[in-house]
Design a protein around this nucleic acid. Structure first.
Length: 126
DNA sequence: TTTATGACAGACG
DNA sequence: CCGTCTGCCATAA
């Protein structure tokens, strides 16, 4: 996002970026997770728009879709490769070429802040 | 103002 | 495990 457009950034987006900035390296959130944490009327789609315009310093690569797929691929395969490298550099494991292992890396911010997927077995991460 | 289009998600068959 | 449809909401034309 160009700095001369900064004044046009709504609090809506700032809220989204604030959440995303909190995601630790090596962990990921889904678009829906971020939307849910924003509590206001922010939809998963809106989070996608925000990520497409993420300013520097916002770890946009740590947001993937609920299945762990790198949805950015629809926009740019180059950026998709970038996202994959950035995640792998943080130790994120993939269960498919462009699918993050969500069971292992999905982030749960505060205790139960996000609705958990029904975890069949969560204790077996190695 | 209306319509179309997404870096989404959930329900259904 | 698919593909399709729907709800969602900010933007662009």
């Amino acid at each position: 996002m160009p700095s001369h457009h900064r004044e046009s950034m709504t609090p809506l987006y700032e809220q989204i970026y604030r959440i995303v900035r909190r995601i630790p390296a090596g962990r990921v959130l889904s678009y829906g997770d971020v939307a849910a944490l924003c509590s206001s009327s922010v939809s998963a789609r809106t989070v996608g728009w925000a990520m497409a315009r993420a300013p520097e310093g916002v770890p946009w690569h740590r947001v993937v879709n609920q299945k762990g797929h790198l949805s950015i691929g629809k926009r740019s395969v180059i950026l998709q490769e970038l996202q994959k490298s950035l995640l792998q550099a943080e130790g994120v494991r993939f269960i498919a070429p462009y699918q993050v292992d969500m069971n292992r890396h999905r982030w749960y911010p505060t205790k139960r802040a996000t609705k958990r997927p029904r975890r069949t077995r969560m204790g077996d991460e190695r």
